[in-house]
Amino acid sequence: MEGLIIHTVAINRQGELKHFEIPLSNNAKFITGLWYKVRLITDAESGVVTELKSRSPYQPEVIIGELSLSSNQREGVFYFGKIILDNANYGLLDYTGGVFRVNNYSHAKFPQSLKVKVDADTAIVHGYIHDNWGVISGRNVRYEIDLYIYQQLKEKP
């Protein structure tokens, strides 16, 4: 059986470093997948960088921050990476667009969750988010990140 935990972390200040703990379900056996979604709360018009311009059609992705997740019963971290705003390059080099433009909301497939396999004996996932969005925007940016932790649950005896 699969279970899902959604944990929301709010970031308010430029360069903020926020540690948090995510309690797992009692009967969790493994952590099997990770996914995240970012929600901007500050108005985008007020100077928040939401896309980077480049000379080539390829658009660099906006890096919002750094995410690290660790289990207490494992050495080191089991996930460490950058949080990326959206895939800005949907429909890259598709010059047929115009009538029905390629967008991630119309053409994307199910966003893939990252597959991991971590023992869930630990009961708590510890992690932090280090803000970068505020740094590149040069101001405080308020946003929330929903972290999705997919877990495999023990079947009831």
């Binding site: 929301t8 979604k37 497939k109 199910f110 966003p111 929903d146 999705y148």
Partner: peptide, 21 residues
């Protein structure tokens, strides 16, 4: 099946996906 505040984005499939998917 989906807990509170589960993003719809997570379960949206665009026209690039197979019809039966």
């Amino acid at each position: 099946y989906f807990p509170d505040n589960h993003a719809v984005q997570r379960v949206m499939n665009g026209i690039n996906a197979n019809l039966d998917n």
